[in-house]
Amino acid sequence: MALALCLLLDPVSDRLVRTLWRRLETEGIPTLLTHTHGQHVPHLSYAVLLAWEQGAVRSAVDGLCDAGPVEVAVQGTVVFPRGRAALAGSTTAALATRQARAVEALRATGATIHRHYEPGHWMPHVSATTGVAGARLPSVVEAVSDRLPFTLRCDRAALIDTADGTMWDLPGVP
C-alpha cells in the first residue's frame, strides 16, 4: 500500500465531510466510510509515499516546522480516474509552499513520492467517493453542490498507513 502525510480536519470540518460520506453511502455510492479497512478519516494529503523507510520518514516529518492550522476553501467537485471524486480545495501560494516543503523533506529521506503529489502537480482535495460509475457522478456532484461553498479547517497532521489505517500524529501542522 502507501504511507500518506495528511492534514486532518477540525471537528466541525470532519463532521461536515462525514455527513457527506453518509449521504452518499445511503445512495449506494461508496466512500471512505466503507473502503478497505474502514478506518479512514477525512483528510487532505500533502504526499503519498510509494516506497519509504519508516524511521527516516518519521524523523523528517517530526522536524518539519509547525506552520499552524490552515483553511482550505472548497468550491466544487473534482473527478479523478476510476470513478474517484473529491471536494476540490483551493491552492493558495502559502498552501502550495507548505506542501512543497513537506514533499522535499520526505524526498530527502529517499522516499518515492507518488507523481500526483509532486509540487506543481498536486491538487488539494478531500475524498468524497472511492469508485463510482460515471452514470452516478451527477449524484455526487449534487450532494457536494448542496453544501457549497464552505471552508475546511485543518488543525492537525499525521502519517497514515493506507494498508490498515494506522496513524502517527505529528507535533504540529507542516
Rank of each mutant, 00 (worst) to 15 (best):
I160Q: 12
T92C: 09
I113D: 03
Q99M: 07
A111C: 11
T112K: 12
R101C: 06
V173A: 01
T92G: 13
A163I: 07
R101T: 13
A105I: 05
V103R: 02
L106Y: 01
V140F: 04
W122Q: 05
Y117K: 06
D146Y: 02
E142D: 14
A143R: 01
R156K: 14
E104Y: 05
D155V: 00
P171R: 15
A88R: 14
L159C: 02
T112Q: 13
I160E: 12
L170T: 01
A94N: 11
C154A: 14
P149F: 04
A157K: 00
A108Q: 11
A158M: 02
P124H: 01
D164N: 15
A105V: 03
A88W: 10
T92W: 06
H125N: 04
W168Q: 08
A88Q: 14
A111V: 07
P119V: 01
V132N: 09
A157W: 00
S145G: 15
E104S: 06
W122G: 07
R107K: 04
P149M: 06
T109I: 10
A108D: 14
T97E: 15
G131W: 11
A108I: 08
P149A: 04
R156Y: 00
S90L: 14
V126W: 00
W122Y: 03
A157V: 00
V132H: 07
A135Q: 10
G172L: 11
A133K: 09
R98F: 03
A108H: 06
G172Y: 07
E142C: 07
P138C: 03
R147P: 08
A108R: 08
A143W: 00
A93V: 14
A96L: 09
R136G: 04
P124C: 07
M123Y: 05
T91V: 12
A133L: 13
T92E: 10
